[in-house]
Design a protein around this nucleic acid. Sequence first.
DNA 1: ATTAATTACGGAATGCGTAAGGATT
DNA 2: AATCCTTACGCATTCCGTAATTAAT
Lengths: 326, 326
Amino acid sequence: MTLRQLACFATVARLGSVKAAARELGISEPAVSAAVGALRGELDDQLYLREGHGLVLTAQGRRLASLATEIGALAGRATTALDERDHGERLLHIAVTGCVEEHIIGPLLSAFSERTPDVLANVEVAGAASFAELLDRRRADITLGPRPGLAEAPDLITAPFLRYRMVIVAPPSHRLAGVDAIPPAALAGERWLVGSEGADTASPAGQYFTRVRIEPSDVRVFPSDAAALSGVAAGEGVMLALWHATAVELRAGSIVRLAVRGMPLVDLWYASTLPDGHCLTGASALRRFAATPEATQAIAAPRRGVPASIVRAPVHATLWHSVARG
Amino acid sequence: MTLRQLACFATVARLGSVKAAARELGISEPAVSAAVGALRGELDDQLYLREGHGLVLTAQGRRLASLATEIGALAGRATTALDERDHGERLLHIAVTGCVEEHIIGPLLSAFSERTPDVLANVEVAGAASFAELLDRRRADITLGPRPGLAEAPDLITAPFLRYRMVIVAPPSHRLAGVDAIPPAALAGERWLVGSEGADTASPAGQYFTRVRIEPSDVRVFPSDAAALSGVAAGEGVMLALWHATAVELRAGSIVRLAVRGMPLVDLWYASTLPDGHCLTGASALRRFAATPEATQAIAAPRRGVPASIVRAPVHATLWHSVARG
DNA sequence: ATTAATTACGGAATGCGTAAGGATT
DNA sequence: AATCCTTACGCATTCCGTAATTAAT
């Protein structure tokens, strides 16, 4: 499989014709046909069928067309975007977990950019399990979240930067509101609301369920922790939430904290990079900055959003949901 | 530029050595060196420098390493994931705007999957401006949001599926609460809270600002509309919000609606696909389903989240933020 | 009969491996 | 002296373009 073959196929898929693709690509028709033929052989699929006037993609063909276009776009970025020398040293690739993305990264970067002007950051949400690999393969300059497995990449520099607390919140009318020393098992039958990470075993909620050995049957996924919290206030269910993200609602009385045994859950988030010589100066600067009181304070402050001037809209957010077996 | 060259460079970047990369790739050392040399020439950058024992990537080299790894991963998906024949016909690529993603897609897909079991959906957030191209290049099977420009892809089938209303909400203590017929210009000096799309000109907020000709100086970005709404309740500012997403908070009295002239703003969202013969049956089924009363009702219902059993955690969400000029 | 995709074949270019050169520790 | 990246050169493979063939309207 070569880039050229993929480009040929992507063009054929888009234009619905080998001839037109050949014209657009500036090569001969057989060249296109052969390129696609090679893919056909390699992937063991027809990719498209001739049908009347035009071509109709097979299911695999459609998927490959999508992948091929995406690959082509990335390759194009390699040739063009790489020229922006300015950004080269200043662009930070930051990999974070969903929870850090929603609650931490905004104020943290906001504060960091005040201290170190002209920072550009590209935030990518990833599972903590992939942190070590992302750093190792240079796909991320720094990771923020749980500690990467040191077994996988022993050379990482890893520093704790935030001690966080998680609590279980419920509507004020909840039957267990005000009750002391609630055993976790008493919550197994509740309706649990979770944010975009769902109840994945790697998510905070999933890890908690595993730790206290409950398997709630009624878990409902919201598009964000904030939306789930709003659901709690509306009486929809209970939620495992980041303590400092619930301060406003707790004070307003729209939700209450349940006194579940073992709560609040305290844990640490880490900032990790490759060793100093091998990572961007910006990455090690951010790693060090994240642990300063200044950063901690910015993160802990009641959330006020981030000035629009320093945040560009997500250019390309990709979420993978899969919905099955209704 | 070829996939092989990129794979060579990615491996060199990861292992920090041409020799080690050659060993891992199972080819000779000069072959690797030449492949990287070709990239060096094409991209006009050294990519890495020899330094003592090992190699140190240049800034461009780091970016290329990231791109190369990503491209390699996608190419790998093309060979392996394409084999999952089962999913071929059932996997829907859905492109939506940020607003639809947060407020609409969950209940819509939840209801759709009840009616059509075994649906798999892959939801991608994109700007409405790219809808036509996404459909045209087969990177999306269906788009949900504003109407794609018909000039760009005249053959699309486009059907309105939801009439939505947007309102401006504020804290109950706001000076304009209860005031009638507020001129939009009176809000130019407010602090505006916006969700993840920011105040981008393509976002609902950005479009509104353009339409009423105000350029607020104080716009603060939150990670989601729900978070921004919670900010409104906390007295942080005002917000242009989807009417039906504010029902719970309005009823609870934690926020109020401002009687701004021209509000509520009413508009339509459209479901668009390629013509029936050229798109997945699932895509046209969803396009038709979205316009049924059943779907409208599911979307309009106060939000309750989506059962965890039918939503998988986002496997790989990529957000591009860029933070500059603190 | 016409349009469009595929196969056949000759020539050019690319890519790999062995061997030698150069730079750094 | 040793290690590692790079250049030099011969060979096999791949890839393209022209021309002929096949399939469908």
